[in-house]
Amino acid sequence: MSTFLFAVVSGILFGVFFSLMAIGLNFAFGVMKIVNLAHGDFVMLGAFGAYYALSTFGINPFATMIMEIVVFLVVGVGLYYGIIPRLLRSDDPEMLSLILFFGISQVIEALATLAFGTNPVTLPTNALGQLSFQLFGQAFESSWVISFLVSVVAIGLLYVYLYKTKMGIATRAIMANRDEAAASGIDVNRISAIAFGIALVLAAIAGTLTPFMLGGIYPSVGVNLTITSFSIIVIGSLGNPIGTVVGGLVYGLSLLLMQTYLSSWANMVPYVLLILILLIKPSGLLGKGARNA
């Protein structure tokens, strides 16, 4: 019983972290209807940022996280204005975005390989700090709990932004009906650029936590992280950032339970869940009706 409870609590801790990792991808899709296939590579860059800052300069991962938030926001806004308005003017922006961001993903991976090599790198688990956490008589890894708390705060702030601020409501208006939002006088490009910046900021925060949650990081891990993120958002609901939290929890719980009881099958979890959800409820657990994206 204690093993089961450990797996469930760990699944929740990991599930919320996975939600954070995937939510930026879903947020960008919801606002712009483009699929950022380089999302996992931005998470990977965030992870290497934490590794490089700590191993080279001894900078605490939380300080790195703050620096990365600024850098990724600027990069996201710049990347939006550089490429996305052109994509959105095309006849098939979704397909073009897949191709374009696949290219960007490959470039990032190649540059990261040149910079960091192909061997996995790790960070000491106590680098995030020490926090004693026990539940059901089980002690949980301090870095897992801290990553969970950071993820809750980041997702909570995204919720506050979307539902309690003027720009967030404008963002949701764009997600619901881009043309009507524009007709209402919302500067759709400006709000979308900020949304893309926020999506990359969320990737950066998740990236900083990744070495503590997933262990060794290496340049080609970005592809795996994109696939995991994509599975999570499909499980929750494509285009609905809050649905990502549900998708992340389902994924985290499934993964940890599989790792506990059928560990050799655990890597299949994202793919099996993806296939199941597409067969049973294609719009995702929180989706309404059939998805046409």
């Binding site: 949701r172 208006a173 619901a176 043309d179 939002a181 209402s184």
Partner: peptide
């Protein structure tokens, strides 16, 4: 005021 006029999800 467009023909739709409102954002239904808000």
């Amino acid at each position: 005021l467009s023909e739709v006029g409102v954002v239904a999800g808000l």
